[in-house]
């Protein structure tokens, strides 16, 4: 039978995949995709705990995570468009203007 630990393991695996993406990506758009993967992984863990402990709080938190992700995407993509108009690329190495 599928238990809580199964879901938590899948959630941890997906979160690690997102973390790998955040660490290795240099393109800002791809970094956004990796953060979406991480947020979705956390949502699975919330829904699973909510189901196995018979508690609705987990689902509530997942709703707020979705709302925050949606607003993050709206603002973030606006900033990406402004950056692309200014620099002509989304690569983090090109955008690094503070040379130490």
């Amino acid at each position: 039978m599928i238990g809580l630990s199964h879901y938590l393991i899948v959630s941890a695996l997906l979160f690690s995949i997102g973390l790998i993406g955040v660490l290795r990506r240099r393109n800002l758009l791809m970094l956004f995709f990796a953060t979406e993967v991480m947020l979705n992984a956390v949502n699975i863990a919330f829904a699973a705990i909510s189901h196995f402990y018979n508690d609705l709080s987990g689902q509530m938190f997942a709703f707020f995570v979705i709302a925050i992700a949606a607003s993050e995407v709206a603002v973030g993509l606006g900033i990406l468009i402004v950056l692309y108009k200014k620099h002509g690329s989304l690569d983090l190495d090109d955008l690094a203007t503070m040379k130490g």
Partner: peptide
């Protein structure tokens, strides 16, 4: 966020 997105983009 919606207003910010509209203004930025």
């Amino acid at each position: 966020a919606m207003i910010a997105g509209i203004i930025l983009a």
